[in-house]
Design a binder for these strands. Sequence first.
DNA 1: TGGCAGGGTCATA
DNA 2: TATGACCCTGCC
Length: 292
Amino acid sequence: MSKPTILTFKDVVPFDLEAIADGGQAFRWEQTNDGEYLGVIGNAVINARQTGDNLEIVSNLKKENEYKIRDYFDLDRDYSSIEKKLLCFEELQPAVNFCTGNRILHQDPWETTISFIISANNSIRNIKNTIRRLCESYGDQIQFNEKIYYTFPVPERLAGLSEDEIRQTRCGYRAKYIKETSCMIADGKVDIFNLHKLTTKEIRKQLKQLPGVGKKVADCILLFSMRKFDAFPIDVWIKRVLEHIYFSGKQMPISKLQEYAENRFGDLAGFAQQYLFHYTRSCWKEIQNKNN
DNA sequence: TGGCAGGGTCATA
DNA sequence: TATGACCCTGCC
């Protein structure tokens, strides 16, 4: 068994590992100790710890693959500049100040697709448990530091399973969607790994052909795995906070909220969404009370 | 112990 | 375009 590789990324600013790992954009990060997170990215087992402005990684990655970490955590993007632009929107200031350094990960599009199909009408705890069972049952084993970890199963593996076998991960009625989507991707009907070359609108259209993928899930895939930052996924939390901020708490149709946010934030929409989501989910009661 | 909501999607009318 | 069903789990 190879020795763990230790990588230190210095002066990573702004960066908030907790907000990133626990911000609902990825479901395979678990806090192991105070401030320390463990995740599996592709074939890599990653132990991540933030110490001040440094990000320390202990993993089974070879040193020459350091770029994969940079790419995944989006370390080469100037988030200071992005946050500065977002702070020009007065209503975003509390959210950006609450979780400065909340970056958008660059995840695998296939894993992101299945993960967010599972997320529909589901709680984050259940989503994580189902994905864990999916990996433990149908992923490949990785040995690291005398423990066994699991990769996310490849499309062909899930496509070859029966609906009942998938259902054993306790994903409920979503098993049918996972099965059908896996088949479409394994058969090449949707070229999930090359979609990023298209425009946001074109990709969204293709993604929505997949069973279990509607507008919201498609926008999550666009934002969290294809770096389409003009995507703005609207879930219950974002709906609540947009209605609160812009419409005096009045219930609005998603389509109106979508149009409003995309027009207001443009190419920064995805970033705005991610700060708003984490802030709202963490502080909803305080947000409500502030203006009442 | 039972009711309810949870990062929505889909079929139906 | 609006409405309700949908698996399962954890929480109150």
